[in-house]
Design a protein around this nucleic acid. Structure first.
Lengths: 199, 199
DNA sequence: TCACGACTGTACCAATCGGTACATGGCGCA
DNA sequence: TGCGCCATGTACCGATTGGTACAGTCGTGA
């Protein structure tokens, strides 16, 4: 065992830069090929290093998976934070914008990975377990805050936010499974009509 | 290779009875322990046979997984068909009844397995691929038929059915992840209010 | 120039996997 | 009773896995 990182965290040198680069490449590969039958050798060959290096930089497959899940989660949340909200948009329009972002074909691999990780997390796999905590609550709070800020009753807003989140996830799963974008979009429009009232 | 089943399908002897018994035990075990890291040896030890027997009765791990997925799917659908619909129930009450059935703690393992299989299917795993076809359409048609039978516009009924199915699945995932039954139930009530109108 | 330390690859290990060959046991039938 | 067939278990095989030991490469400072 000759593996020890030169500086202990919180300092970016060539080591951590390389590590971050490998991690990003790993997430890309996993988003495209799945996490279920991932092997260090296969991943290494795909991103151009030996499996030895993955162990070197991440300690073990388990820890690598933890980092992959965490990074994938952060990417997912960035979709929300990158929303450019022009003033004057109705809540329904904001929701439409977010929906279009989430269902962009470019993110399909990432979304598949999300459901795949959910499946693993529901089985208590440690690398995915931390996702379960934030799977609902992390998304609920900003949504609730938005509705309450618009003058809604907090308790009702919480139920509505939870409902909206669940519906988006359900329709996303539908879209990934069937690929029927028109049908799923129509169902989403119907939901927005119910949710924000007819227009 | 000395494996050949005595009669070719469509005849139930001791062979097929034993096979069905093993399959049911396998589905039970998989519902409780997951399908991701299933091994023939581990499964065999859990249900009291050698892994050799699983190969004997199912040909290969792949075919066993196909049968497990199919059986689990059939069980899931049986929940719907076992609904005893007393006349005089409002559509919202029927939905509530179905929701309570689907979220019964007894079925939690089965529901986890459902999402786990979805994750595998989205990656093109052949044993789960056949699920993707029926994941939406198989459930949509009876729901659409029910709404159309009640006098709804067919196109609108399709969108509404698709929406309802997605919402149920999304809330089910929420429930499995958070275990917050009260919160998820409240969100479901909010959905029913939007869906069927206030009462 | 030389030594040192970080980075990386090759070769290897024990464990486990799905699948197979072969031996055993127990039942029905003549 | 003895023959044969089917169910089952044991032992094994090659492939693959995560992880490790060791050696080589290369830039850098004395």
């Amino acid at each position: 065992m000759d593996d020890s990182h030169p500086e202990d965290e919180a300092e970016q040198g060539a080591y951590w830069a390389r590590r971050a680069q490998l991690l990003n490449a790993a997430v890309d590969h996993v988003a495209g090929h799945g996490i279920a039958d991932l092997s260090l050798r296969g991943l290494g060959a795909a991103i151009g290093v030996s499996h030895r290096m993955l162990i070197h930089y991440f300690g073990s497959k388990e820890q690598l998976l933890v980092e992959i899940v965490r990074t994938s989660e952060r990417r997912q949340r960035d979709v929300l934070s990158r929303l450019r909200l022009e003033p004057g948009l109705s809540p329904a329009d904001v929701a439409r914008l977010l929906w279009r972002q989430l269902t962009a074909p470019r993110l399909a691999g990432q979304q598949r990975l999300f459901f795949e990780i959910c499946g693993h997390a529901l089985r208590g796999r440690p690398e995915a377990a931390l996702v379960l905590e934030g799977l609902v609550t992390d998304w609920l709070e900003p949504l609730v805050a938005a509705e309450v800020g618009a003058g809604a009753d907090p308790a009702l807003a919480r139920n509505r936010a939870r409902l909206g989140l669940a519906t988006v996830r359900g329709l996303l799963l539908d879209l990934l499974a069937t690929g029927d974008r028109a049908g799923v979009d129509a169902a989403m429009e119907e939901f927005l009509r119910l949710y924000y009232g007819s227009e």
